[in-house]
Design a protein around this nucleic acid. Structure first.
Lengths: 229, 229
DNA sequence: AATACTCATATTGTCAACAATAATTAAAAT
DNA sequence: ATTTTAATTATTGTTGACAATATGAGTATT
């Protein structure tokens, strides 16, 4: 099950449907960062009335993808350095913790599934050289599979519905730039090995290190970006 | 500045105002747990139309105080054992982390303020024997003061606007029952001492232990409750 | 020229009527 | 008597009009 498939549920109402749609448009950059959002305009372009649109905007605010100020309006967030640092710092702590819990709670068949998932990633990397964005989305599936087994509904909810949404936004921002994906796969194997050995502390540490490594890469890209302009 | 004062800002719109009001009514038990919420009824009793009320309900959903199911309606959450365990587990991890960050970032005058705050609590405990709920609210101020200095806006936001709201609800639920507050004060002093010594690891550990201790007390109360019925 | 003020305009907040869906009740069939 | 089905009712979702507020242009004043 893909992480995107999971988000597709619950689109029973207009408000939910348009919420998902706008969310994807923000994450993929169709609506650019910092863009001011006029309710009337968006309502027309998504072909709904302002009521459901406002509800969608509230939901977008609740997952920190838009800022809303009373009587003034909404705008898409801008991923500045401080925000990305906050997000990665948060992710390191929370997903590390989730990994520890998952290591304790996982069944053996869960672990087997993880190994199979990694093998699929490995072969898909060999086949499709250069399609880094897809490969990264695959990596999200790996992370999701682990923390979804931590058995703490609040933790799962926060990681899945808040942190990972801006995270995907970050990745889209920096997906143009080249970097290697093989090291990540190596990290992933080490994490699953730790889980397989039922070593929660090590699993947590490896996951935290993996994430802080990802942040270092992103940070370097941001620095380079700044120098070049 | 009290934690409640902080929540009082931003009541510029009807929707915000009624959101705060309903939130307090849920937390303090005026609207009981598990209660089914009819939009029409609530709108009349708070004397607004259904539009702003619906927005308020969405906000309440986003801080996990009500469940909303499409076409079916909303109901106040019920604090069962599993949920409270999730919340305390989450709090232990996140507030522990926040304490570590705050320990690094705090200025000396911040630390002085913390000591003064504790002295105030100490004298207020001696004066008002038995008024446990107020004392607990004071303890929230202590916790808020620390994590608000962690310099991670996402972390502050989550602790303040999500976790601490259900936490207050938990406390209200168990505030009838007697237990001692002096040990908590002792814990608080130990935490501030660790911060004052600029020992982030120890500060985190002490905070985590303090919170998991609180959870053990609550858990025992819940068990006793179950046995007695 | 720069700042403060007023008014016009555009945008957001609120309301009440309408449409669509789910829950409930009653009837019918097994 | 129990289960299934159909229709009724009550509740939620959606819409467009109206009210309140902020933004911005233009004018006056220092």
């Amino acid at each position: 099950m893909s992480i995107n498939a999971l988000q597709a549920i619950k689109q029973d109402t207009l408000s939910e449907h348009v919420f998902q749609q706008i969310k994807e448009d923000i994450i993929t950059g169709v609506i650019p960062q910092g863009q001011k959002i006029g309710e009337a305009g968006l309502a027309k372009s998504y072909d709904i009335s302002r009521g459901p649109l406002r509800e969608a905007l509230h939901k977008l605010e609740s997952i920190n993808l838009v800022d809303r100020r009373p009587h003034s309006g909404s705008r898409v967030i801008t991923l500045d350095f401080a925000m990305m640092q906050d997000v990665y710092q948060m992710r390191e702590a929370m997903e590390g913790f989730a990994t520890r819990l998952a290591c304790i709670a996982m069944s053996q068949s869960d672990i087997d599934n993880l190994y199979r998932l990694l093998e699929k990633h490995e072969s898909s990397i060999k086949q499709s050289e250069g399609k880094r964005y897809l490969q990264q989305e695959g990596s999200l599936d790996f992370h999701y599979y682990i923390f979804s087994k931590c058995q703490n509904q609040w933790l799962i909810d926060y990681l899945n519905n808040k942190l990972y949404q801006v995270l995907r936004m970050c990745r889209h921002r920096s997906s143009q730039m080249p970097f290697r994906v093989e090291p990540a796969l190596h990290d992933h194997y080490a994490i699953v090995d730790a889980i397989n050995n039922r070593d929660p502390e090590l699993a947590e540490i490896l996951m935290r290190r993996h994430i802080s490594g990802a942040w270092k890469i992103v940070k370097n890209l941001l620095d380079k970006e700044k120098i070049e302009e």
